[in-house]
Amino acid sequence: MPLLDPRSWQPHPLTGPGYSVTEPATGQVLAGLTLATPEDVGAAAGRAAAAQRAWASAPHFARAAVLRKAGDLFSEHADELRAWLVRESGSVPGKADFELHVAAQECYEAAALASRPAGQVLPSEAPRLSYTRRVPAGVVGVISPFNAPLILSIRSVAPALALGNAVLLKPDPRTAVCGGLSLAAVFAAAGLPQDLLHVLPGGPDAGQALVADPRVPVISFTGSTAAGRAVGEAAGRHLKRAHLELGGNSAMIVLEDADLDAVISTAAWGSFFHQGQICMT
């Protein structure tokens, strides 16, 4: 049975305009989806905030079990997910397999976070116990791009969920399936309770609503420097934590004793991997 059933892609119907997800190589329509509006973002934030309380109170081993199962599912359904990465995002099979491997590993690493010490005892002059305690932030907003859609979504979604948060994920509409709905399908199959992960493909207005919503205290953004600057400025106005991973150009340091043939090959690979649409290689 396919993991990605179109009938369950958007369990809470969105209210924006419909659009077609197309294959870049052929122009073929792969799916019909609906864009999220600012009102949809607000509704999802309310549902996520309500669901997050019980999830934060769940035993750490229960959250970890969901993350481990999600990692297994990325491997078990690799053929289906690979096909979406190839057709929707224009990946070659090797790049798609790289994303799937990283997605599974991100889930396993996040599962280990759930049982990390949540505080520390502090030295004090007073005759009493003084300590700090780390608690979930609440609802985390994730804005992810099109170039490595699965990796650049899961690396924020998995640790946020493992530590007891809910997530609003706004993937690029061009890769809404492999960068958003595929994650929702995996986590639903792994046993994640309802309303803890909302997928909201949308335009700048949806992103602005996500950054502005008072129920979303943390924003994780990956994308262009220009867009990231706007997100950072808006987050600052709203006194939110913003984690920004912005544009780069595959810089490389070559030392005197380097094998220049290997350097040239590696530099070309890093610069032109995925048609040059990667900034971290």
Score class of each variant (00 low, 15 high):
M1S: 12
P2S: 14
L3W: 03
D5H: 15
P13V: 11
G16N: 04
P17K: 08
G18C: 14
Y19H: 11
Y19N: 12
S20A: 14
T22G: 13
E23F: 08
T26Q: 06
Q28Y: 09
A31T: 12
A31W: 06
G32L: 15
L33Q: 15
T37H: 15
P38F: 10
P38Q: 11
E39Q: 15
G42H: 14
A44Q: 09
A44Y: 02
A45Q: 08
A48S: 10
A49E: 04
A51R: 01
A51L: 12
R53C: 09
A54G: 12
A54M: 11
W55C: 00
W55F: 04
W55A: 00
A56F: 10
F61P: 04
F61L: 10
F61R: 07
A62F: 02
A65T: 13
V66K: 06
L67N: 12
K69E: 14
K69S: 13
G71R: 04
D72S: 15
S75M: 14
S75P: 13
E80S: 09
L81F: 13
R82S: 12
A83P: 11
E88S: 14
S89Y: 06
P93L: 14
K95S: 04
D97P: 11
F98N: 02
F98C: 00
L100Y: 07
H101S: 13
A103G: 12
A103T: 12
A104R: 04
C107K: 08
C107Q: 08
Y108M: 07
A111M: 06
L113F: 02
L113K: 03
A114W: 03
V121F: 01
E125M: 05
L129P: 00
S130P: 03
R134D: 03
P136W: 03
P136I: 01
A137E: 08
A137C: 11
A137M: 13
G138D: 08
G141W: 02
P145L: 09
N147S: 05
P149C: 06
P149L: 06
P149M: 05
L150F: 13
R155I: 03
A158M: 10
A158P: 07
P159K: 01
L161N: 00
L163C: 09
V167D: 05
L168Y: 02
L169D: 05
L169K: 10
A176M: 05
V177L: 04
G179D: 00
L181D: 05
A184E: 03
A184F: 04
V186D: 05
A190E: 01
D195L: 05
L197Y: 00
L197P: 00
L197E: 02
G202T: 06
G203N: 05
P204Q: 05
A206E: 00
G207T: 02
Q208V: 08
Q208A: 10
L210K: 02
A212M: 06
D213P: 06
D213A: 07
P217E: 00
V218W: 11
S224P: 07
S224G: 09
A227I: 07
A235R: 01
G236A: 00
L239S: 12
K240H: 08
G247H: 02
G248V: 07
S250N: 14
M252W: 07
L255W: 06
E256P: 13
A258S: 08
D259P: 03
L260W: 11
A262L: 15
I264D: 14
T266I: 14
A267M: 13
A267G: 12
W269G: 12
Q275L: 15
G276A: 15
Q277E: 08
I278V: 14
C279P: 07
T281I: 09
